Simulated scan of single mutants.
Amino acid sequence: MPAPTAMDTPQQRPRILIVDESRNVRTQLVQLIRDQYDFREEGDGEGGWQALVIDHSLQLVICAVSISIPLLDSDGLLARLRSSRLARLRQIPVLMVASNDEEANVRARALGASDFIASDIDASELLARIDSALRLAQAQNVLREHPERDTQHPDTGLPTRQRLEVHAAQAISYALRHESPVSILIMGFDRFDALRDEHGEDLVKELHKRFASMLFTKVRKEDSLGHYSGSDLAVVSPGTPYPACEAFANRLREAFAVANIAVHGKRLDLSVSVGVANTPVDRLNSASSLLTLAAQRLKTAQQAGGNRVVACGEKPLSQQPAPRLGHAIDLIKAGHENAVIPHLLHLSKEVLPFLELLERELKLGLPLAELRKRTLDREH
């Protein structure tokens, strides 16, 4: 049995460094993470750098995108970390609290920021981002330090989650440098536990192998197919824009739905669901956050009855906060009109005149007729 890691041992909680000149900001972040992680605070980049050099227990950094931190700003801290002679510091995950200055965000990304979080992020999302970043860092360390270690799943021969996360990180890094899209699909059997209870573990493993084999014949050579968790499989598809990826997900779902899979002469009623995430549509720039979002959308699809694809903008409104109007407009401009209506269904009739004004002045192509109809239908 492998030795427990810091993330598996309750007595050894991962330790997070929070760097921000504002005591209030540091306090807010501490309140969000203190139940799950140990922490250390520093008020400037120089103090953060010294802490990281001395304190080997620090596993992740949260730092504001800022040019005003005294002594050493966030750009300088990132530059020192990514050019350090110590591998531990070169590879440490750094979550940046995004700035309203997009140029500052771009600089931070170019200097090696691992991920970006909003200043008003809630506890559940922040904890999920930290957990994903730590897991990715751990996977990269394992593969780097033990290249001989088996990175293939014993049942299917596909890459394990550790290897898949590394592939995803590489694809995202390349995409950001070349301003190209990356899509991620995570798919799994609907009603998996009931299927296993009724037919047994051996049959489920065999179905999993067939599912993996079918997917392997469908993906491109440049795509990465591997395990995500349990029976769920994931595809990392570099260069694939969101509409094409969603269409591909539906083709996979339909192909499996019509497959004639029988046990003892009896055809099994099987279906799969797929969660889709994409950069730039989802405005996420890290592999961990995209994988987590795709997994959340898979769960949403399964909870909604299964045999469906949940992609950008399609999460049921009861399970997500009301999206920002600016995001919906960005989706329209990017050619994703079908994703806009689910984003705007929370709008009331009182807001529609404002949208009509925007349409007259800016010619955004808002689907106003459909929105009016949907809004009236909901009221009745």
Rank of each mutant, 00 (worst) to 15 (best):
R251G: 04
I261M: 07
F216K: 15
R251P: 03
G239L: 01
S213R: 08
A244I: 03
F211C: 11
L215A: 10
A234K: 00
K218P: 00
S224G: 05
R220I: 04
V204Y: 04
P243G: 06
G226V: 00
A259K: 02
F216Q: 14
V219E: 07
K221W: 05
Y228P: 08
G200L: 03
F248G: 13
H208K: 01
E201L: 12
H199C: 05
A262N: 01
S213W: 03
E246V: 08
A234W: 01
G230A: 07
R253V: 04
G200M: 04
K205C: 06
Y228D: 08
F211H: 11
K221N: 13
A244K: 07
T240H: 10
L225Y: 09
M214L: 12
P241E: 07
V258W: 05
A247I: 03
K209G: 13
V236I: 07
A257F: 09
A257I: 00
V258G: 06
R253N: 06
D223S: 11
S224H: 12
L207N: 06
A262D: 02
F256A: 11
S231L: 05
F216I: 01
G226T: 00
L203R: 05
E201I: 08
R253I: 03
L233V: 04
A255K: 06
E206Y: 10
